[in-house]
């Protein structure tokens, strides 16, 4: 985002004075017409629904029945609803477990992939994008099987080396870890490529000079790569906060017995899944909208906090 917005001063010259008023009008509205589709779509399917969420949240809103204004009742019920706090805890826990390791792994891999003489570089880059093109639904199904308590590959291996089988789908910690593994698997390669792109913009000469001065891999990473990556790290922290707090599909497909709650004790029900359950299974649109508002506040607060922290913390100069 370094390209400044006002960089294009020249651009397309205006059309010559047209002979007809109609033609002149067409040329004036052309740029607005070209950008209009996005603005119309965003307004109708993004902004208006978002604002409307705040409105619906003030009602007892039955999709095929009455809409009764209840003021802030939905919110006071939400505050007293243990299912809401459970979902909020799950959401934050899964988000942390899936974001922090993912970004760290991506950092290391990007640094390794940035080696000039690396063979098979294209192969490594391409394989890392394979999880990204695999759907979340397919990912959830295959991972749930691999991590199954009785018949899963992982627990079989754990058993071989003498460990107890871990119940990844029915326990709280296990299900959080499993969902985090799925999210990490899907996104770490994409994040790695973003980091790698930034690293490649760093002049080779800087690394060479550091190597000549005796700086090894680790010091090069800490003192050259990491500072160069700051903007893209901030970007990925903010985007993975926004995405990680809205996890839905993995949780829905984990426990097919009690899908809408992600298991009998709601062990991995995220806020988005709770919203879905209240809105589209229980048909409590007003209450679901209130959950949406709470989630909105949470996303804005945490994304803002992360932006603030990641732009303020400076690497220690050494």
């Amino acid at each position: 985002m370094t390209t400044s917005i006002s960089a294009t001063k020249a651009g397309l010259p205006p059309a010559p004075p047209a002979e007809t008023a109609r033609r002149r009008f067409t040329e004036i509205v052309a740029p607005y017409a070209y950008i209009a589709p996005f603005f119309v779509l965003f307004a109708v399917f993004g902004l208006i629904p978002l604002l409307f969420t705040f409105y619906v949240a003030l009602f007892d809103w039955n999709p095929i029945g009455e809409h009764v204004f209840v003021g802030l009742d939905n919110f006071s019920r939400l505050v007293g609803d243990v299912r809401f706090w459970n979902a909020a805890r799950n959401t934050v826990s899964i988000w942390l477990l899936s974001t922090v390791p993912q970004l760290l792994v991506a950092l290391v891999l990007a640094h390794l992939l940035n080696h000039v003489r690396l063979r098979l570089a294209l192969f490594f880059r391409m394989t890392m994008l394979v999880p990204y093109i695999t759907s979340v639904a397919a990912t959830a199904i295959v991972f749930a099987q691999m991590f199954d308590r009785d018949y899963g590959l992982l627990n079989w291996l754990l058993g071989l080396v003498g460990f107890e089988h871990i119940d990844f789908t029915q326990s709280v910690a296990g299900s959080h870890v499993l969902i985090a593994v799925m999210v990490t698997w899907r996104w770490f390669g994409y994040t790695t490529l973003l980091y790698l792109a930034s690293l490649q913009a760093v002049p080779r000469a800087i690394y060479e000079a550091a190597a000549v001065d005796g700086a090894g891999n680790v010091r090069q990473f800490l003192h050259i790569s990491l500072p160069a990556l700051r903007p893209v790290i901030v970007f990925t922290i903010v985007t993975s906060t926004i995405g990680g707090l809205q996890i839905f599909t993995e949780a829905l497909l984990l426990n097919r017995g009690a899908a809408n709650t992600c298991g009998p004790i709601r062990q991995c029900q995220t806020l988005t899944l709770f919203l879905f359950e209240q809105g589209f299974i229980q048909f409590k649109f007003g209450y679901a909208a209130a959950i949406g508002v709470a989630l909105f506040v949470m996303v804005v607060a945490l994304a803002g906090l992360n932006y603030f922290l990641s732009t303020r913390i400076r690497p220690v100069k050494g």
Binding site: F45, G46, P49, P63, Q246, F248
Partner: peptide
């Protein structure tokens, strides 16, 4: 790009 529109899914469905 930073607006989490997925949580507005109830009004989106209404539209």
């Amino acid at each position: 790009m930073t607006v989490p529109t997925q949580l507005a899914i109830v009004p989106q469905y209404m539209i």
